[in-house]
């Protein structure tokens, strides 16, 4: 474990907590894409298949349970909670996320480190996570006004993967044979997808104006 990865995990945890806080306290999911939340639940479900078979550390197991539990409960809240679901904007959240799942699955079957079920599922979760934010970014473009919590949520979600890139660089230089091209490239693509959001997020923060994404 290194400081970059720990900071990345804490940032990722913070993003999930910000979202749960928003949904649980103000009972609203305005501006939140259910599609992205469903994709993230699928990412964790396919990535943590080793939850009960490989014990790495208490930290690792605990964080996996938190990410699994929070992502599925967020999907539940937006889909079934009688108050929260009313604020879900299904007419705007129209990204066809199945068009993301299938290509990622095919790509995972073609490009992976080892053609085993677990490894293909794990690779699929990496490719899917890289694009899972797209429905959310599209929704932000449409719903002009982005409230603070939603903006912070997306920012933290992007920042965690950027910190992971620093972690990979650190591990590459400190651990012999630590080479994982698939992880690195999908992590880089994921972070780049946030690039324009980061730009507008910092602009709004610097000029102290409301966050607005260009149409």
């Amino acid at each position: 474990m290194n400081i970059f990865r720990f900071a990345g995990d804490m940032t990722h945890l913070a993003s999930v907590l910000v979202l749960l806080l928003k949904i649980h306290t103000i009972k609203s999911c305005a501006g939140i894409s259910l599609k992205t939340q469903e994709l993230y639940a699928l990412v964790f479900a396919t990535r943590y298949l080793d939850l009960f078979t490989d014990y790495i550390s208490l930290y690792n197991t605990l964080m996996k349970l938190i990410f699994l539990g929070s992502s599925f409960s967020i999907v539940w809240y937006i889909r079934y909670h009688k108050i929260v679901r009313r604020s879900y904007d299904k007419d705007q959240d129209t990204f066809r996320h199945y068009f993301l799942v299938l290509p990622c699955l095919l790509l995972a079957l073609l490009i992976n480190e080892k053609f085993t079920f677990r490894e293909v599922m794990w690779t699929f979760s990496l490719y899917l996570e890289a694009v899972a934010i797209l429905p959310q970014l599209v929704l932000l473009q449409r719903t002009r006004n982005i409230d603070n919590l939603t903006g912070q949520y997306v920012f933290l979600l992007g920042a965690y993967r950027a910190l992971y890139i620093l972690n990979w660089i650190y591990r590459y230089f400190t651990e012999p044979h630590y080479v994982h091209w698939i992880t690195w490239i999908s992590g880089l693509v994921q972070t780049l997808l946030y690039a324009d959001f980061f730009y507008y997020y910092f602009q709004s923060w610097k000029n102290n104006v409301k966050l607005e994404l260009p149409a």
């Binding site: 990865r5 995990d9 990722h12 080793d50 490989d54 790495i56 690792n60 964080m63 996996k64 990410f67 794990w122 992971y164 972690n167 992880t183």
Partner: peptide
Amino acid sequence: SEEEDVKDEL
């Protein structure tokens, strides 16, 4: 055989 590279990252 190569040591099973355990996925230690989240």
